[in-house]
Write a protein that binds this DNA or RNA. Structure first.
Lengths: 331, 331
DNA sequence: ATGAAAGCGCTAACAC
DNA sequence: GTGTTAGCGCTTTCAT
């Protein structure tokens, strides 16, 4: 139970100065091969690992980034984080993960932690109930870069990386039209979220511009249960839909429960399409046709965008991941 | 774009010494209320946040822990991490997350990062291909506590926290027997995993000790697809099962696909029970009866166990989470 | 009740 | 090619 080896210890054993050891360890060209080797050997033998707290303090280069997500109870954020962690590790960064629980107060607390740790960047997905992003923007004052992802603020000044909401909604709407659906139950999430609005707006545009006789009716479901009931209600109404569009996995899950509950046959009686990360559509039989919005790809994109910011390079402030239709036969 | 406020800056502005400011900030009793208030006010105004790199360096108390998991592509680890992060934050710790991708080499690299960050503890789930835990045990030499969870080493000396596999299997078997099932298709994962063996052994014991006339037949499915086909095959055979037991979520998912594919009515034609984290059983209608092995609860347990270790308190080296039957009506 | 001083482990001018 | 030195921001004796 002793503390870890330090640079000073190595330097003393070898009768060298700390600076020489430091340089040897990072292959500085000034150091003679023979000295370098001696240092490297001893370092390995003593299991020397640099104290990143000291390095971070000295260089203000902590090589740490933080990811703030609302939760981990879906596949989207998990795959996002996987991608970030992978890319980050490759680039020598550690990833600290912070959950907001969709609580703006916890979000603020998380940002405090980011300051305290002197992380170099924050990848943030806004909580559903965040009213102001002021606490985020203030981070820039202390040289912490902020890249928003997925649930991004509408503020055009911010760096954002998100799935191509407009495109995804357009692809789905196009497909519904091409399949000649006449009466599409269109389930969207909370109307106050910008992601909902972007998807909804485009969805409406496509329908009104491309189709004259095809109908859709929009409902907002803020939970799986709400989506489940929305479909059950519509199914029993006089205006039974011939297709359902699900804006998210959460909504798809509710819809599928209703489908099984009412024993609805799809695609026969009802066509189903969703915007999804791709995991849940694969859970059902038949599998569900969906427009893919990959959390993994988004994570890669987000980290790379953040690094560009670190390097001070100019890059687009708003990046959207392109959407892809995956046909599975449910519509 | 200036650096963050430091303690020294505050001390200069108020013409106080750094030590006084430091004490005021942490409510040291020696400090006069008047001074304390002045410091607190200015700190708030300047958005002062202590530099945890400096604190960690000074006190060797980094208040950081690491969690190593194979992946985030299921709900189990996600909920485990959620619990850990919550508990950790409450206790003033940050959680850095490290993915091994089931690769022992990456695992080693992750442990190096733990050393470099001088984390105080590591919560580790072994990768499926880890042959030796030596690199883990060596961490203790530098005062880093290690608590294994879920996939734990068989070494009895290690601190482990896991779900009660034996109990979970027993509860499921008991329930199947009490429901008078005569022909139970029992689906287990890879026979080489210790988790599979613990569950299978107990399952067999319960059936042979408690029931004389009730039958079960075991099959091993190493993927969702394999489970799907196992049920389809059994269903069409001359020995059609009247119940199916799923050892894991992965297997349950495959089973449910087969159920929908063959349009099997449950619980009428087939009873279904699973050992699960609790998310997937809730996805279907009717919902699936399961024996709960909560990743969330396990996370809470693991963190608390680690804190006990930090405090040098004695506690059991091997903790198993108790299993609970959640009846949903699918059997 | 407050201050002075040392030092945690490392890096980076600047010397030689 | 190697050493000296100062200092990153903080805590913590030990004085006063």
């Amino acid at each position: 139970m002793k503390a870890a080896t330090t640079l000073l210890q190595i330097s003393k054993i070898l009768s060298l100065s700390p600076s020489t050891v430091s340089r040897a360890l990072k292959n500085h060209p000034d150091i003679s091969p023979v000295t370098r080797q001696k240092v490297l050997d001893l370092a390995k033998q003593l299991e020397y690992e640099p104290n990143l707290n000291a390095v971070g303090l000295r260089t203000s280069n902590t090589k740490e980034i933080a990811v703030i997500v609302p939760n981990l109870s879906g596949f989207f954020y998990g795959s996002f984080i996987s991608a970030v962690e992978e890319e980050a590790r490759r680039a020598g960064y550690s990833t600290i993960i912070l959950l907001s629980g969709d609580d703006p107060l916890v979000e603020i607390e998380n940002l405090k932690i980011c300051r305290q740790r002197r992380v170099q960047g924050v990848l943030a997905c806004l909580s559903a109930r965040t009213a102001s992003i002021e606490a985020f923007t203030r981070l820039k004052k202390v040289e912490i870069s902020v890249v928003f992802f997925d649930k991004v603020p509408s503020d055009a000044d911010e760096i954002t990386v998100r799935v191509g909401d407009e495109e995804a909604a357009a692809v789905a709407a196009d497909y519904l039209i091409s399949k000649k659906k006449k009466n599409v139950l269109s389930l969207f999430a909370d109307v106050n979220m910008s992601i909902t609005n972007r998807r909804l707006t485009t969805f409406r545009q496509i329908f009104s511009s491309r189709s004259l006789q095809q109908n859709y009716f929009v409902e907002h479901a803020t939970s799986s249960e709400a989506a489940e009931h929305a479909l059950m209600h519509a199914w029993k109404s006089s205006h039974r839909p011939d297709a359902v569009f699900c804006m998210s996995d959460e909504i798809l899950i509710g819809v599928m429960k209703a489908v099984h509950r009412l024993d609805i046959k799809y695609p026969g009686e009802l066509g189903i399409i969703a915007i999804s990360n791709g995991f849940f559509p694969n859970l059902y039989y038949p599998e569900i046709t969906f427009v893919e919005t990959s959390g993994y790809k988004l994570g890669q994109l987000a980290f790379k965008r953040m690094v560009l910011e670190f390097e001070g390079k100019t890059a687009p402030r708003d990046v959207a991941l392109k959407a892809e239709l995956i046909e599975k036969g449910s519509l």
